[in-house]
Design a protein around this nucleic acid. Sequence first.
DNA 1: AATTATACTTTGAATATCAAAATATTTGAT
DNA 2: ATCAAATATTTTGATATTCAAAGTATAATT
Lengths: 150, 150
Amino acid sequence: MTETINIINELLVEIYNNILTIEENAFKEGQFNNVSITEVHTVEAIGMYEPKSMSEVAKELKITVGTLTVAVNNLVKKEYVERYRSENDRRVVKIGLTKKGRLLYRVHAQFHRTMVNNCVEDLNEEEHKVLAKALGKLSIFLKEKYNLLV
Amino acid sequence: MTETINIINELLVEIYNNILTIEENAFKEGQFNNVSITEVHTVEAIGMYEPKSMSEVAKELKITVGTLTVAVNNLVKKEYVERYRSENDRRVVKIGLTKKGRLLYRVHAQFHRTMVNNCVEDLNEEEHKVLAKALGKLSIFLKEKYNLLV
DNA sequence: AATTATACTTTGAATATCAAAATATTTGAT
DNA sequence: ATCAAATATTTTGATATTCAAAGTATAATT
């Protein structure tokens, strides 16, 4: 009982510690060798479709808008992201992905799909639900902790 | 089917994105307000018992020894860590936790236990095993990816 | 004894981050 | 219509984390 729980904790820590390094390295190879994993996550937050404002993206990434400005400067330089100024409200800067940015988005999404598929391939439908339930609880726990402090 | 898998992926991303922020904030309160989450993880890697060499700890944390030297300098200044020089081989520097460091270690471990307990409290024994199995697969997947590239 | 290897530290540069100051634009109040 | 306040973003200055490469001290090998 507590034994399995210990194992779960150790696995979570291990996964957590490995995943950053691995994603980072996955992108160091091949065509996207000039992007950091932070930059990939920024691209992910900007998303494939409608351009979003700086504030929206910063909020999603839980960073300040100032930090995002610096990040977007580099992503524009590297041609993954484009800036537009909103016509409705000229204070607002909208950011969207270039063709190159959308390709990067898709490659990263594919990495995630492969990862999750691999993780659940030996589980049946019932077991998928158990996993989703446990992860859902974990997510809620973390959000509650977060709100407590923000 | 694919729907549950999508949910699992989204949960993993969400958990991943939240956990750093939350751990960081958890330590900004109370007695350990002067340590970053990176520093907590360094303390965790050093461990409660036998002092470890710089190389061992750097390897565990997947950072260079140079980076660790800087981190340990600060942790020594803040009195969480002590340096010893090995008598067998005077090139080797061993690092261990002070009393204050061990307290920090235990507080962090407790955070993890609470988190995991909360996450599995509504699951029965059988379901624990399913969760452990899925996380185990994920961990193996990540390690394989990692070894592929190192 | 001299060379090579190992363990660590220092240094210089890049990235990521925040808070606070600065700029531009819009909204609201008089 | 004008001025003040609010909002959206950028810029700036400071700190933390990281790596690679150069430097130092000790051990192992030849």
